[in-house]
Simulated assay, not measured.
Amino acid sequence: MDIQLNDGLSFDIFKKVTVSCPVIFTTAFDQYMLDAFRENGIDYLLKPLKKADLGQAFTKLEKLKSHFSSDIVEALRSAQEGQSGLRKRFVAKKGVSFKSVPVDEIQYFFSEHKVSFLVNREGEKLILDKPLADLENELDPDVFFRINRKYIASISGIESYRSFEKGKLLVQLIPAPREEIIVSQEKASVFKEWMEK
C-alpha cells in the first residue's frame, strides 16, 4: 500500500475499515514508519522501489504466514489431547517452526520472564504458549509435580533431592538448569510422598 495518495494518506483508510491482513507500505518519505507498523505493517519500503527489497518483504511475509498458521497449530493441538483431558503431547515452538513433543519425553517445564518453556530428554528448550498454572491442570499428577512457582518436573526429570536450609529441599533436575531448584518447607513432605508413589 502506498502511503501518500492523491486524496490524502492511506492511514485514513485504516480509521474507517478494519484491515486484519499484513501490509507492506511504500512511500518516498521516512516519517511515516511508526504509523505504518502500528497499522499491521510488516515492511516499509522507500521509493524508488528495488526489486530485491520487495522480494525480501514477500519472503518475510511467507515466514510470518507459516509461523502464525493457526490451522496447523490447531490441528496439532486437537491431535494431542486425550479423552481423559490429560495431555499426551505438547506443541512447542523451536525457532520459527513448531514441534510435537510427547509428554513422556518431557523432563520439566519452567517459566522465565513470563514465558513458559519445556525441556525434553535431549536437553532442547522449547517455547510454549501457556502459563505454568494452565499446564499444571493438563498433566498427570502422578507423573508431574509443581516444585515451585517456576518449575513443574516429571518424575523422570528428577535426578535426586536433598535436605536444604529450614526444612526446604534442593532438587537436582536432568538436564540441570542454571539455577537451584528449591521445594518450600510447606511442600517438602508432599513432594517426598509423591516421589515414593
Rank of each mutant, 00 (worst) to 15 (best):
M195R: 14
A52R: 02
Y44H: 04
P48K: 13
A52C: 04
Q172D: 13
F14T: 08
F98K: 14
R149E: 00
I158H: 10
G167C: 12
L132Q: 00
L139W: 04
S69Q: 13
F14I: 02
V23A: 08
F191S: 09
F98I: 11
F109V: 09
K192T: 03
A75F: 12
K63T: 05
K94D: 13
K15A: 07
E196T: 14
L128T: 09
T26R: 02
V119T: 13
L34R: 00
D142F: 05
S154P: 05
T18C: 06
E186H: 02
K47R: 03
Q80G: 09
V91I: 14
K130D: 15
Y161V: 15
F29N: 13
V17E: 01
S184G: 13
K114A: 08
L173W: 03
K125A: 15
K93M: 10
S70P: 05
R77K: 04
T18H: 08
K51G: 11
K51L: 10
P175L: 12
V171I: 09
F29E: 12
K99M: 14
N40H: 01
L49Y: 03
S184C: 07
I182F: 00
L5T: 07
N40E: 05
K166F: 15
L61S: 06
D7K: 11
S116R: 15
S163Q: 14
